[in-house]
Computed example of a mutant assay.
Amino acid sequence: MLQYPQIDPVAISLGPLQIHWYGIMYLIGFAGAWWLGKKRAHRLGWSDESVSDLIFYGAVGVVLGGRFGYVFFYNFDRFVQEPLWLFKVWEGGMSFHGGLLGVILAMALFARKMKVSPFTVTDFIAPMVPIGLGAGRLGNFIGGELWGRPTDLPWGMVFPHVDNLARHPSQLYQFALEGIALFVILNWVDSKRPARFVVSGCFLLFYGLFRFLMEFARQPDAHLGFIAFDWLTMGQLLSLPMILAGVAMIQWGRRRAVFDGPSSE
């Protein structure tokens, strides 16, 4: 079995100021999305300034949606007891599914500003999102959080700050699937110039499937445990609507006779 390398979660300390690796991973994710967005923006005839605005909208959606999602999906009881805890972001706590809802709302507002279909925007940004997802999962691993369930597989890893059991390094599994595999799939689909809705639908479908499967290796949240059937987790429950919506969007997009290119907007 492997040993967790005990990486210091603080990357840089400047007096009282501490910069955590997790925060750096967020910056890497946004910077990577901005770089890729600039390379792809010519398809829609957007300027570099438009891409920068898009990333800003997305960043606000991720942070606000992620925090609200974590509080309301995973810790609603604490919020009821202590409403101001919602604003204690320094204590940590972000939810992907909440962040997704925040980004969807942010993209709708951006689309209104640009006078284009919201799905034109989501199709554009979807292939860029896995950069941030992959970086975030590496941040989880560096921080020694969101560890996996016990395993007897040869690559099981002991997280000493948790216990002495060999566990799935589920953060790395999710990095491989949500970061690398999802990036390859979405950019391949996007390269085929599919109809509108398809790229967004593929994001929802494949992320939902990957997250649903990885939850079987990931330790459930201690304060929630299993939601039902002694195996269903909150992450799986929240991923099911994504899978269904993804399938519906792909089918709807495939029924469109022609690809809605940038000239149609």
Rank of each mutant, 00 (worst) to 15 (best):
M1H: 14
Y4V: 00
I7N: 02
P9L: 03
G15I: 03
P16R: 08
L17F: 11
L17S: 03
L17D: 03
L17H: 00
I19Y: 10
H20M: 00
Y22Q: 07
G23M: 01
G23S: 05
G23R: 06
I24A: 11
M25F: 08
A31N: 03
A31R: 05
G32N: 00
G32P: 07
A33M: 09
G37H: 12
K39Q: 15
R40V: 04
A41Y: 10
A41E: 09
H42C: 13
R43Y: 15
W46I: 04
S47K: 11
D48M: 08
D53V: 11
L54N: 13
L54P: 09
L54G: 15
I55G: 09
G58N: 07
V60D: 09
V62P: 10
V63E: 04
V63A: 06
G65F: 07
G66A: 09
R67V: 03
V71T: 11
F73M: 06
N75M: 00
N75H: 10
N75D: 02
F76M: 12
D77F: 11
F79S: 08
E82D: 06
E82M: 06
L84T: 07
W85L: 13
F87E: 04
V89P: 04
W90H: 14
E91T: 07
G93S: 02
M94D: 01
F96T: 04
F96G: 09
G98F: 02
G98C: 07
L101V: 01
L101G: 12
L105S: 01
M107W: 15
L109R: 12
L109W: 09
A111S: 11
K113M: 01
S117Y: 06
S117A: 09
P118I: 03
V121N: 05
F124L: 01
A126L: 12
V129T: 10
P130D: 04
I131C: 05
L133E: 04
L133D: 02
G134E: 00
G139S: 08
N140Q: 12
F141H: 00
I142S: 10
E145L: 02
L146M: 14
R149C: 03
T151W: 01
L153D: 11
G156N: 07
M157C: 14
V158T: 12
F159T: 02
P160M: 10
V162G: 11
N164C: 12
L165K: 04
A166H: 15
R167N: 00
P169E: 02
Q171V: 05
Q174A: 08
Q174P: 05
Q174H: 05
F175M: 10
A176S: 14
A176W: 11
G179W: 10
A181L: 07
L186D: 05
W188Q: 02
D190G: 06
S191E: 09
R193T: 14
R193Q: 15
A195N: 15
R196C: 07
V199D: 00
G201N: 11
F203R: 06
L204N: 08
L205E: 00
L205R: 08
F206C: 13
Y207K: 04
G208V: 01
G208E: 05
G208Y: 04
F210R: 05
F210Y: 10
M214D: 11
F216I: 04
F216E: 13
A217G: 13
H223K: 14
L224N: 07
G225H: 07
G225A: 05
D230R: 13
D230E: 13
W231L: 09
Q236V: 05
S239P: 09
I243N: 10
V247P: 09
A248W: 06
Q251L: 15
R255T: 01
G261C: 02
S263Q: 15
S263E: 15
E265I: 11
